[in-house]
Design a protein around this nucleic acid. Sequence first.
DNA 1: TTAGGGTTAG
Length: 779
Amino acid sequence: MSSIAIPLRSLLQNPSTIKSKHHAKQLHAQVLKTEGSSSSLMATILSIYSHLGFLHESLIIFNTFTSLPTIIAWKSIIRCYTYHGLFKDSLTCFSNMRASGKHPDHNVFPSVLKSCTGLMDFKLGESVHGCIIRLGVDADLYTGNALMNMYCKFQSMDEGFDSQRFGSGNVDLVYEKIPERKFERSLDSEMDVEKGPHPRSLKVLGKNENQLLVIGGVTPRRRKDMVYIESVKKVFDMMPCKDIVSWNTVIAGYVHNGMCEEALRTVREIGKANVMPDSFTLSSVLPIFAEYVDISRGKEIHGYTLRHGFDSDDFIASSLIDMYAKCTRVDDSLRIFHLLPQLDVISWNSIIAGCVQNGLFDEGLKLFRQMLTAKVKPSNLTFSSIMPACAHLTTLHLGKQLHGYITQNGFDKNVFIASALVDMYAKCGNIRIARSIFDKMVSPDMVSWTAMIMGYALHGHANEALLLFHKMKMENVRPNYVAFVAALTACSHGGLLDEARMLFNCMIEDYGISPGLEHYAAVADLLGRAGKLEEAYEFISKMHIRPTGSVWATLLSSCRVHKNIELAEKVGEKVFQIDPENIGAYILMSNIYSSAGRWKEAAKMRVAMKGRGMTKKPACTWIEVKNKIHAFVAGDRSHPYYDRINEALKVMMEQMERKGYVLNTDDVLHDVEVEQKRSLLCSHSERLAIAFGIISTPSGTTIRVTKNLRISPFQGWEVFLWRLLVKVVQVPAYYSKPRNTNTHTNKGVHTGKESQCKSLSPTDAALFLLNQMQLGAYS
DNA sequence: TTAGGGTTAG
């Protein structure tokens, strides 16, 4: 109650000393009691409420003015509307203020410009700029900064259009710059539209050639060839005095438009202008070094932040986390993350994305779970970052639960998330759901198409993949490097040599994309598999980039299939030369010798492998049963159900042989007797996993097995399983590490009641679901 | 009045 002691007049003259709502209300009451309710007094009270951000109280005063509101009252209410994101109301007020004959002064424009920015109203923003120039307030620092910020946002909005396709809006108008003399009318008529029967809704859907497409109403299209970054520069250069905000704004503008060199040049000028860079400057500059993968300059900035006490700034921290992660130094990202005193959704997103992008899928999932435990509500970016982890780990149950959460919270409209879902379902072996999500997308972008095409490719549906690829081009979505990888992969899996050759040439000639290792590897693989071994050899030899060991190893495997030992030895030499640690090549050479009966040379290869300390990565197959991962390696007897699996295998094998199935022992390349080969085949990891799936699920259930190595198609085995009415889906788990064989032991089973879900908040529900995911099984 | 994070890659 100390405020009572301070004279009322003094308080009213220094409204900034009022810090709380309670305090403001007290003053309001006191004024009404002792001083009356004159317009100017009430305007002062209004400005106090407005500065504290109390819209309701501000409006009560504003709406009780009997005479015309003073300029202070107008400015306060405009400011308060903008502060609350009520941009339309703010601009309506501005228009009404103009109509009432009041002249806006310099400190109303920052709010008005912010409202134009919030609505992405290009036309109105430029009109307001005209007004600012006409009133001669363009030299004002805050107004100049707000102008630059507005043009920066307009520019980035523009940039966004180029990479996406959009549906058509219902109205679009050609916009031409309004001559200044027409300014007043145009601004006011704009407001009439606002209030009229066709409310102005500025939901911008996108750009089409040279049109801006919007939904809901009259909206200008940007002037052709308008580059807003030029306006930013112009305003910046014209500003008579600049502060660090001005510098930061123009730098951020450059960074967002990919003008990294311009941004860095401007940063260097800051020093000359006698201004000190602050945390805003630093967090704008860091993404440049992430983009350039320039760890040394990034580290310099990191050092600067530490020396200047910015180390607990979460904006800088998330930029640093991202920068280190993009430079593949995710350990440094984690270190910074764990030192942060407080974590917001973006810090979490940055570290989760950093882990997933660097292949630390388990770590990413662990952090995601921790994020929910910390009661931080995930955003759409969280999901598009975490989903690839499910995709790469091929954990369908986890992906499905995330999908449920995503749908519940309406995140599934986001093109990033939808693409990630398509990819996840495809990688986890559920191509149908992947397709249905893809089909529901309103405007799939190139990444969405590519994910779907790659999904078909991985599932061996080559024709479907190529059909989509052509459809994508028909829809004017331009394929990039990765899209061609997907299409060529489809050809490679489908044995479509001619199509692959066509695509390969089309990529170079029509799209100007220079082929990378993946493209070369796909074509080389196809040539090899078609038996054109010499041509494949020529093709690889003539690559314009240096072939890696694995490209040659592709040909080596073709040599094995076509039993060409001479060429195999030549190719083997190449691999050993380029990549002496390539285990695959030793195994292939050993197998090539084995199948030719040259056991001694095969043994030599194995000895060479051992001599180099290399061991073959065991083939591992895993299967999800009741949300638990069960992993098997050949001959593994540690599973609790091992005896029952073995029993089931025996019964099935008998049934199969009775139906005429002949076990193919040719593929077993060990120097052992037939009976032993038979036993080796039966203890094969895939068969163990499938047998386990059959005995632990009801008849007719889809059995989805995942392998760490490339999958060879089922033969008689598959036919038999189909007869059992069990559908078997095979999923190759590229890039994922083989599971520890102990994962089937019973760890951390959740016994919570499902009904709890209903009364929980979305975050709690997700947390509850995740608790059931038994992430312990992977870590 | 200024700042940070995301999807596809045999």
